[in-house]
């Protein structure tokens, strides 16, 4: 009996396994058929990338040891001494550069004057083509803005690669200290041009 059972059962097991396999195949086929779209649409694709588009940057440098600010010191009585520095637009496009004044003298009686010249001032302090007055004896406590563009007009731009030569005079009375002219803002002009050709 035991021997007969052992002889039959493997055969029965194989038949069951075969049936199960058939059922599994049928089930998977049914799932595959249902999952596949009845009629898939076809597609083709290609991709392109534009060239690099870059935005301009407003950049500048000031002459002297500090490229970001010009500092002048003044004594208790300062009436005649003038100092010079230069601003250069090192960016690739015109920009409006506006200087900002800070100083150490609190609200003391200080007056600031700034002149601009498109060329270097002579040793005598004159501008060959005529200097432009940017600030005329303004109270330093008011922190007068300085348009480095070379004219007194607001938003005057300084072309890329060009410089303005500046002459600075601080008129003080019984107050000593320092005044610093730094960059208040460097603003790019409005665009709106067709740049298709570059």
């Amino acid at each position: 009996m035991s021997t007969a059972t052992n002889a039959v059962c493997p055969a029965v097991g194989r038949r069951r396994a075969a049936r199960c396999l058939v059922l599994l195949v049928v089930l998977l086929a049914t799932i595959a058929v249902r999952a596949a779209p009845a009629a898939a649409s076809w597609a083709t694709q290609a991709a392109w990338q534009s060239g690099t588009v870059g935005m301009a940057r407003a950049q500048y440098t000031l002459s002297g040891s500090d490229a970001a600010a010009f500092t002048t010191s003044f004594s208790l009585v300062e009436a005649l001494t003038v100092e010079y520095f230069t601003i250069t637009n090192t960016g690739s496009t015109a920009a409006t550069f506006t200087g900002a004044v800070t100083h150490s003298a609190g609200a003391g009686p200080l007056q600031l004057s700034v002149w601009s010249c498109p060329t270097a001032f002579t040793v005598l302090g004159s501008c060959p083509g005529g200097a432009t007055v940017l600030v005329a004896g303004a109270a330093m406590g008011n922190r007068p803005p300085i348009n480095f563009g070379g004219t007194a007009a607001a938003n005057a731009t300084l072309a890329a690669g060009t410089s303005r030569f500046l002459k600075v005079h601080v008129n003080s009375l019984l107050v000593g200290g320092w005044a610093k002219i730094g960059m208040g803002s460097a603003v790019l002009p409005a665009g709106g041009r067709n740049r298709t050709q570059g």
Binding site: V53, A56, L188, G191, R195
Partner: peptide
């Protein structure tokens, strides 16, 4: 298409 433009300003177009 693959050529770029530098120093664009606001509102510039190509």
């Amino acid at each position: 298409f693959t050529s770029g433009v530098a120093n664009m300003l606001p509102g510039d177009y190509l």
